[in-house]
Design a protein around this nucleic acid. Structure first.
Lengths: 250, 250
DNA sequence: TTACAACCTTGATCTATGTCAATATATTTG
DNA sequence: CAAATATATTGACATAGATCAAGGTTGTAA
């Protein structure tokens, strides 16, 4: 399989040459013959088949996100949808040990995956102790994140949910920079209003209203609808409802 | 450390003598010198210190629930609470690799734990490959459960939430029995209305109203407020909003 | 057996967010 | 560039569930 950007060095035995500093991936690199790098097509519509990376009922692959944003979500019979995972670069996709899952993975933007067939991956998992350790660590971290998210879904107001989402995305994209002049936060929010509503358990109208309210109150600025500039990061964190500063501010 | 009921055989090398058929515990039993069995005091009030098994900021133990019901929950500064885990017999408590957690564990009923100091447990984790595998499997299962729960919190109606909770508890307590006469489901709901509301992201009044609505519609019967008899299990499953029967009915 | 505390139910009212609908702004395609 | 399509905003109105308040049950300790 031919490499495309971003270049990976499949023969490297550590993470230094890997564009994503992800220890699980290092273990993969040691078995370069299994490495497949593939660019997913751009996301089009929810229902269109081509946006679905993996459908829940047929997961033959596992992998890591290299670039782009994907999402894990679940749909009820009548169409209600809830996102249950936001997959950013370095996140793992898939469930070793099972070919079935209740969740679908969709590309939100163009997504590059470092992807593996499930069966040989499972063999690696039992052969390489380090990989198993790393998977456990990742699963426990995801579990913690899922539980934070449950607090958001169950108890936060619409305003708090939006503020939390913005703070999470800013942090995950390393978009929070402390300069002499203050805290500089500006990032692309690579989700539509609808995707945000699916993340937060709201409707897209409520998402839109809350974002525009934050704008009117000068907490954030909007550029081209999807690029966010945070004027008052401390205020944004207040609005999340979480205690203290979560480690962002000293 | 002296054993109390239920009797465990600390020297057993498989699960057969263990009251909870839990593979992780087997690995523990092989190292019996580390086994501590302790009965927690009964749950009294949320704020009373004696109901807290582990506080999030000082987790020196991990362990499994042997009997009783505990809960993992998270509290916001202003007192809003969300349960993020319902811990029934065989569930694992604690987070190896970290002494801190954002969540508190509280006893809901009297709880018996099979409990271990975190440090030696972590050593076992690296010494016993089987244990690490088992922990990974458990973490992935919990992650799936957390994600189902996110759908419940984000998208289900109050009615659907209650029906889902009843179905989950019935299943987890093995209270669903298929007889010649039909499906017999009856169980103790060892949670107060308030605890249910914390699980479901509702108020306790809404929980009460929905339970009594299900009673009026003859889906369930109540005995002494906490014992549930399900008259129409198929109907209850319909009310959960989940598709099909989730494998309960043929 | 009474009295107290914890837990639960029910009613009246309020409100945050959903729903429906119209319009505006971006983005893509021809 | 214009047309078409996908996204986003905004308004008017509806409603599920929250909140506030009162009274009823159940369990328990004296």
């Amino acid at each position: 399989m031919k490499m495309t950007t971003p270049a990976l060095n499949p023969a490297s035995t550590n993470c230094d040459d890997c564009p994503i500093k992800h220890r699980a991936v290092c273990a993969y690199c040691e078995k370069s013959e299994m490495l497949i790098l593939e660019t997913m097509k751009s996301y089009k519509t929810y229902s269109a088949g081509d946006s679905i990376i993996f459908a829940g009922d047929n997961m033959q692959f596992v992998g890591s996100v290299v670039t782009g944003v994907a999402r894990l979500s679940q749909t009820m019979e009548d169409g209600r949808r809830q996102m249950v995972g936001l997959l950013l670069p370095s996140d793992f996709i898939g469930r070793p040990g099972r070919s079935h899952s209740a969740f679908d993975v969709e590309a939100t933007t163009d997504v590059t995956l470092c992807r593996f067939e499930r069966k040989p991956f499972e063999k690696m998992l039992s052969d390489i102790p380090h990989l198993r350790e790393r998977m456990l660590e990742m699963a426990l971290d995801e579990l913690d994140a899922a539980r934070e998210w449950m607090l958001l879904l169950g108890r936060k107001t619409a305003r708090e949910k939006i503020a939390s989402l913005l703070a999470i995305i800013a942090r995950r994209q390393n978009a929070v920079h402390t300069t002499e002049l203050g805290i500089d936060v500006s990032f692309d929010l690579s989700l539509t209003r609808e995707a945000m509503s699916e993340y937060l358990g709201l409707t897209l109208e409520t998402v839109s209203r809350q974002i525009n309210a934050l704008k009117k109150e000068n907490v954030i600025k909007l550029e081209k609808k999807r690029h966010i500039i945070v004027n008052d990061f401390a205020r944004l964190l207040m609005e999340t409802g979480d205690d203290a500063d979560g480690g962002y501010l000293s």
